[in-house]
Design a protein around this nucleic acid. Sequence first.
DNA 1: ACGTATCCGTGATAAATGTCACAGCCAAAA
DNA 2: TTTTGGCTGTGACATTTATCACGGATACGT
Lengths: 212, 212
Amino acid sequence: MMSTPSAINENFSELVEPGLIKEINDLGKVVKVHTGDKIMDYGGEIIYMPLLVSGVLKVLRMDRDSNELILYYLQAGETCAMSLTCCMAHEKSEIRVIAEEDSAIVMLPSELMDSWMQKYPSWKSFVMKTYQTRFSELLNTIDSIAFKRMDERLVQYLIDKSTVNNSHLLETTHQKIAEELNSTREVISRLLKQLENQGKIELGRNKITLKL
Amino acid sequence: MMSTPSAINENFSELVEPGLIKEINDLGKVVKVHTGDKIMDYGGEIIYMPLLVSGVLKVLRMDRDSNELILYYLQAGETCAMSLTCCMAHEKSEIRVIAEEDSAIVMLPSELMDSWMQKYPSWKSFVMKTYQTRFSELLNTIDSIAFKRMDERLVQYLIDKSTVNNSHLLETTHQKIAEELNSTREVISRLLKQLENQGKIELGRNKITLKL
DNA sequence: ACGTATCCGTGATAAATGTCACAGCCAAAA
DNA sequence: TTTTGGCTGTGACATTTATCACGGATACGT
């Protein structure tokens, strides 16, 4: 498995100390995953912390009856705040992480995190920034499910998905959307049909085209 | 305004460096607040970071139509993760913080946070632990609103409130509960009546008694 | 003790979402 | 081509929660 020094520089430009870059390149393993691959699961041990070099991951929450809910997407240059907390505390995962697209991830042994905080100021800043953005994302998620109706949530979902995939054509099924929004296929189908009637999207089998 | 060295030692025993304790005692201002006082509000600047020495604070989220939702409680020995992120980034608050009980808070100038992270390992651990617990709390909140019905959420609310107030007698109104759960008085009244019929609580004007 | 605010209980009804049932359609495999 | 399985559309109905309306109860100030 080859390490890719340039990838870190390109996507994590805020990490500046040469010693830090060197440690990441020496100790991190590059892992390539494909769309749909599971990177982490509820209850799993977290012994690596993932830096996302390319692609998109999605972070999901589940309950015991395996109802699901998408929390947020991770893009190149980002990492998972949950992994941070878990790494530091050697705890188990409270979330599931799935590759939304083919992705490349640098896996860092979790025991390094702590010492780097003191050793490399830019690492500390990166960690802090990660917490801040993930906190905001979680609050957005809470806003959606607490204060919005399903039609609004669906529109936001389509926009977000279109944004991270960088495409107006979404290749998915009503069933999958329903799962990620913790709803049901019939409800999503009907709301999508409404949106089509309003001229905002076009529907096809396994695909949704956003118009604008 | 007097500083209270012992209060820090008692409630924040994980903060161990003498230099850190001294800085907190020298630079922190002790503020006393009463039940219902607003400590922070949505959109407000955060220039102090609050360490809760005694009492209970509640952290709320609001939307534009001033619908509200309780996120979690803070107890003695804890601090607000949102304040942490805001302090570090000099950002505005995304939440509202209200005193649930009379409380004493040590306010620390936010510009110190960053340097302490490197200077005092126990401060860094404290900050990390804070993030971890708050993250978990937010996930719990998400679980509740995403996966549970109002009757379950209400029971959990009553238990949580009883726990932080350390009393089986809750002095509040149906209206206030409805606001913190982002519901309506009628719904809460009916559900409370159900619980009373099941023998789980007793209702009175401005009070609810938990039986077990 | 009286008047008044607020709080509480509850029926009737509406809106949002979930569930069930089933039919048609499309795409890939045989 | 035919079959098969998954995807989509939609009516009918159930459940959960919100809204409206209003009357009665309780505490508090004067």
